[in-house]
Design a protein around this nucleic acid. Structure first.
Lengths: 180, 180
DNA sequence: GTCTATATGCGGATAGAC
DNA sequence: GTCTATCCGCATATAGAC
């Protein structure tokens, strides 16, 4: 983390993320972002070809990293569910600011054509725990476990990291365990 | 359900809900809605004083009904958790189209100043199960249980109603039970 | 890589006639 | 209750100079 002077491109992403999170994507104009940085709109267009391009550049690395997480666990044999849940928690906790953005404005996933990737990601997570053809009961429990870990990260942001991690993962293991 | 010819006001709400759900609130202009109904924008303004007013008119009854559900269970002594969860499921299942709208665009709750009501609602639900000062572990489990029921309704829309109800409520009881 | 200047269009909203 | 006409503002986006 050298934190050398960030490039203009990176500064734009930083400020955009902060403003998107605070006042919403749609309500944040490129003008706003440019003003905040002391540059002009055309300068912004030099770095990002459109508004969606900017949003994509912020969200895509997240999707990428999530996919890698799943791929890593898919290669394990056997799958260790508790470690999967822990990694899943850490991923969400680490990126909770960006995730808050995505989840309070889920629609943007569709707008940047990433909705399919997100759905596929969910499907593969369930597959890791219950195989490719889960029963309805198993599907419900998987939704509750993974969704719940996500929600814990976002709804209890002030809780101490390690205690929250234990609480969330334990709760998830409880739901999953009763159907294993 | 007389389904007499709906008033223009009701037809606007119907069409708006359908378009909001399909293409998003922000991307649906009053012009779009008016065109679809074969009327003009000013005609729309006769029925709703602003765009937010229209959104509010669609979402508010939902919030209202949710509050009534919580209030009803708050008056019970003792609280019967399984029945609370069943009512909670039925509420979400019945209104899943509108809820999909709200949850894929959570930001709109802030825009119509209903975010506080929504947060308070969650807080009271947790209180019904674990009292006013839940531990972190209990809070995590409550988030997982209530959030999970919600997610099941929205993510498994094709599942048979009764089987889904049983699966979701059972799973929720499992998480809550282990901390009761 | 950043600027000035500007084109263009759409969205919300209102006035006032029918 | 619905229309025509219109205002205003802002957003996206481009051209071309420095």
């Amino acid at each position: 983390m050298a934190r050398s002077t960030p490039s203009t491109r990176e500064r734009i992403q930083e400020v955009a993320l902060e403003m998107f999170a605070r006042q919403g994507v749609q309500r944040t104009s490129l003008q706003d972002i440019a003003n905040r940085l002391g540059i002009t709109k055309p300068a912004l267009y030099y770095h990002f070809s459109s508004r969606d391009d900017l949003v994509r550049s912020i969200v895509n690395p997240l999707i990428q990293e999530g996919e890698e997480l799943v791929a890593r666990h898919e290669q394990r044999d056997p799958v260790v569910v508790s470690e999967l849940l822990e990694d899943y928690f850490d991923f969400h906790y680490r990126h909770r600011e960006k995730l808050m953005l995505v989840l309070t404005e889920l629609r943007i996933l569709g707008e940047i054509e990433s909705i399919d990737a997100a759905l596929d990601w969910r499907r593969r997570l369930v597959g890791l725990v219950f195989g490719p053809e889960p029963t309805l009961d198993q599907a419900a429990r998987a939704i509750m476990a993974f969704g719940g870990i996500q929600d814990c990260c976002l709804q209890l942001p002030d809780a101490p990291h390690q205690r929250l991690r234990t609480a969330a993962v334990d709760a998830a293991l409880t739901v999953l365990g009763a159907a294993a």
